[in-house]
Design a protein around this nucleic acid. Structure first.
Lengths: 236, 236
DNA sequence: TTGATAATAATCGTTAACGATTTATAACAG
DNA sequence: CTGTTATAAATCGTTAACGATTATTATCAA
């Protein structure tokens, strides 16, 4: 029941900023616990996070500026529903940026960064064995965040995080049954190319990797998700 | 007198969004009419744009999320003062993204896009002849925006616009007397490489171009700008 | 005159309240 | 029973007001 997944996000009450709210929603979208078109009503969010309306409103504005939520005037905030055109743009941008990142990473051959990425891939493998769906999805996307992390540029880091979150929305909308995660072992191949210092091959592998994800989508029939049905049929 | 430059920004009262405020401040920063560390007090902005405090506050939040302004708790909003480390990150990110863009542009060889860029360079040349400082600065930065525009990806477009604006702040802080604009004729060289379809050369030219700008900076002595002096000496 | 201290003014952050629009519910005609 | 209309509830956007903090000015001692 993905419509109740907001309940999982209580307030830690440690951070004064509204970035906490943003990060929580980021995480929920990344793990596909928040489906596209889910309504994010202000009163519900206020209660969930235990903060005033202003904080929630600011967080929603930030999320809207990043294409994660859609603010409809006088109607409210909804988790964004990327169009096929936007999906193209996101993948295109990701290919360009991530190819550049791995190219430079392969040039550097930073041992500790590579070790960290290797460790992450092991975590992915273990999660796949156990079969925790949310965990697999989360780690699968997080690998790409870790790539940007290893590069150590906060600007690109932020952009990539944003794009990966939007990718989660795209996969949630257009993805076929088993396309929610990255094709396995491709991450390992990319890392191998980086480790070997093969810059162009690493860049190509990343591009192909993203194209594989894109190929697993069905951009024609934007499948109406379950939440839509719930909204149409009513919940009581 | 750069401290009064806010006066030039009256409200058009056509657009309902607060993006208008954001864009005005963007433009002012790009043309270096708003120097780093300039205080953006809410009452002044409200009056300048003829809007309520909420709008101004939202705009400032958006600008802060993009690193253009710095929100200091209980003190107010100030035009950001990038550190040398941030400057490095901005240039590094720009090199990666813009190199990728021109590489792909050279691959495509889109006639109309090239014609548009050629036209823009002509405008730059004319402005240089006339000697309008603000105009030169604006067009010089805008060429890079036009590159992203030609690529036609709104995601990269937004990111590049953000980075170029931050570059204006960096040049304003660390730039030497005549380093405010891009080295002339380098834009033309880049476009020539794109037109000729020389992908790698175009990418290298862009990187070198950005490195030239970076080389014209003096990251050691962060020159205290005039506005600081005005604030110290008082204005009456 | 210079420096420190106290009082005043201005600004910021937040909360609460109000109208406006939308959505849900209920009543009713066909 | 279906479709429509009218009422009621809920939500959103905005404005106004209130403490709290900061900046400025004025006062006074050295």
């Amino acid at each position: 029941m993905p419509s109740n997944s907001l309940k999982n996000m209580e307030n830690n009450s440690t951070e004064p900023d509204e970035h906490l709210i943003v990060n929580r929603i980021y995480a929920a979208v990344m793990e596909q616990r928040l489906a596209p078109n889910t309504k994010l009503s202000e009163p519900k969010l206020c209660e969930s996070f235990g903060v005033g309306r202003m904080r929630v409103r600011r967080a929603l504005l930030l999320l809207a500026s990043q294409g994660i939520v859609d603010l409809q005037s006088n109607k409210g905030a909804y988790v964004a529903c990327p169009t096929p055109g936007e999906a193209d743009e996101v993948f295109s941008a990701r290919k360009l940026i991530e190819a550049g990142i791995v190219r430079d990473l392969a040039k550097r051959s930073d041992e500790t960064a590579i070790a960290g990425l290797r460790h992450h891939i092991e975590k992915e493998d273990r999660a796949r064995e156990v079969g925790e769906r949310h965990e697999i999805i989360r780690l699968s996307g997080e690998f790409h965040v870790e790539l940007a992390n290893a590069y150590g540029n906060s600007v690109l880091n932020k952009t990539i995080r944003e794009l990966i979150t939007r990718t989660s929305l795209i996969v949630g909308l257009f993805g076929t049954n088993r396309s929610a995660t990255c094709p396995e072992n491709e991450h390992a191949q990319i890392l191998d190319a980086i480790t070997a210092g093969e810059t162009e091959r690493a860049a190509e592998l990343v591009c192909h990797h993203l194209e594989h994800i894109q190929a697993g989508l069905n951009l024609q029939h934007q499948q109406p998700n379950e939440d839509d049905l719930v909204a149409i049929l009513g919940s009581r």
